[in-house]
Simulated scan of single mutants.
Amino acid sequence: MKFQKRRSVIEATQWFAPGDHPAVEERNGAWSVATPEGWHTVQVGDWIITSSEGEVFCMSDALFVDRYEPLVER
Rank of each mutant, 00 (worst) to 15 (best):
P18G: 00
S8K: 10
E53L: 11
S51R: 14
A17K: 15
M1N: 09
A17W: 01
F3R: 02
T50F: 00
Q4I: 02
I48P: 01
L71K: 10
Y68N: 01
P22H: 13
E11L: 09
A17S: 12
E73P: 00
D61S: 14
R74N: 10
S51L: 12
F64I: 02
E11S: 12
A62H: 08
P18A: 13
M59W: 00
V9H: 01
W39G: 06
K5M: 05
F57M: 10
K2F: 14
L63K: 12
S60W: 00
K2D: 06
P36E: 09
L71R: 11
I10V: 15
A62K: 10
E37A: 14
P70L: 02
V56Q: 07
D46W: 02
D20S: 07
E26M: 15
A34K: 12
R27K: 15
G45D: 13
T41D: 13
E25Y: 03
G29I: 10
C58V: 15
R67N: 11
S60V: 01
F57D: 04
R27W: 06
T50W: 00
E37W: 04
W31D: 08
D20L: 02
T35I: 08
G54E: 03
S8T: 10
S51C: 08
H40Q: 15
E25Q: 15
E11H: 10
R7L: 03
R6V: 00
V72D: 04
Q4C: 07
K5T: 04
V65M: 09
V9I: 15
Y68R: 03
E55K: 15
E53M: 08
P70S: 04
D46C: 05
T13L: 05
A17F: 03
L71N: 10
W15I: 05
V65G: 07
A34D: 11
D61C: 11
D46G: 02
T41L: 08
K2P: 05
E26D: 12
W31F: 15
W39D: 09
C58Q: 07
A34C: 13
T13Y: 03
E69K: 09
A12D: 00
F16M: 08
R67H: 08
R67W: 06
Y68F: 15
E11Q: 11
G45K: 09
A12I: 06
A30S: 13
V9M: 07
